[in-house]
Design a protein around this nucleic acid. Structure first.
Lengths: 152, 152
DNA sequence: GCTAAACTTGAAGTGAGCTTTAAGTTCAAG
DNA sequence: CTTGAACTTAAAGCTCACTTCAAGTTTAGC
């Protein structure tokens, strides 16, 4: 029904790199940390990839773009065609959604505060003086330590 | 009018660390990269700080919390009481506001896309199957490579 | 068979912002 | 004066996701 699956396991690392835009060095690195299993070798020892490797790399890059770390996305790639456990996957996704939300909220806070800082400085400059320590101190309080950064 | 300024330049690094919550090792590091100038030494060679050092450290931490790098914030701390140039400061702030906005936008994109991914997977699971490669591929396209991350 | 491009390896380097280590010195209380 | 907590230094280590290096091997076209 869909496209015919012509499985050529003849692809070398350069071709895979060209097909995906992922540098060969990075592909080797992904294999090294276990993100890209099932790589076969030619007689001489060079890596050969099946066509599915292209999709796998695209998935890795897409998950990265969604803010997952390479470690987090292991859960999406269960060993040997085993469907990953739905609960784990869902938990990972929900966790990521939550940290994205938290991060967005904290960034908006920062943006708002920084806008206030700019306004304060401009008022001070307009009246020919510098911002006083007390004025600055007042703003410092409103910054506080927000949650950790992540994503992209 | 405000609080009396009792300038004790007797503070050692441990006291400064305790007063600000910034580890002594970090304070030494800030000094090393030139963020914390004007540190005097006792006869024996241990660092002594004026009370203003507390404000300086609080400022550094606040600026960090607003997403500035340690390098970027140098512009706010011009040498020896010299008021920093308004234009530079304003440009730095505006740049940071712009990158915060861009980052927020890209994170919201990620959040939206990931929500779609979750919905797709849940539909697939509900119908007792796994998501197909084609379904996944369709989502991959919508991710693309967003701008770089920063802040906090 | 020759050659050049492509590939192989392990190890070290990158950046940002620290932390840790090791071995030695100073400070303040008693 | 003794003790031990606090301090000193330079240098190495940490995280994450790679990149770069150097020197040697394989592959593919002619």
């Amino acid at each position: 029904m869909t496209t015919t699956t012509t499985t050529t396991t003849t692809m070398r690392i350069g071709a895979l790199a060209a097909a995906t835009g992922v540098p060969a060095s990075t592909i080797r690195y992904y294999e090294q940390i276990g993100l890209l299993p099932g790589v076969t070798r030619s007689e001489g020892g060079s890596r050969r990839y099946p066509d599915e490797a292209i999709l796998r790399l695209q998935m890795i890059r897409a998950l990265q773009a969604l803010g997952f770390t390479l470690e987090q996305m292991q859960v999406f790639f269960q060993p040997e065609g085993q469907a990953p456990e739905h609960e784990q996957v869902l938990a990972t996704i929900n966790g990521q959604l939550a940290s994205l939300q938290a991060l967005i909220a904290s960034l908006r806070d920062k943006h708002r505060t920084l806008t206030e800082v700019r306004a304060l400085l401009e008022r001070a400059w307009a009246s020919g003086r510098c911002a006083t320590d007390d004025e600055l101190r007042a703003l410092l309080g409103s910054v506080a330590h927000g949650p950790k950064n992540k994503a992209e």
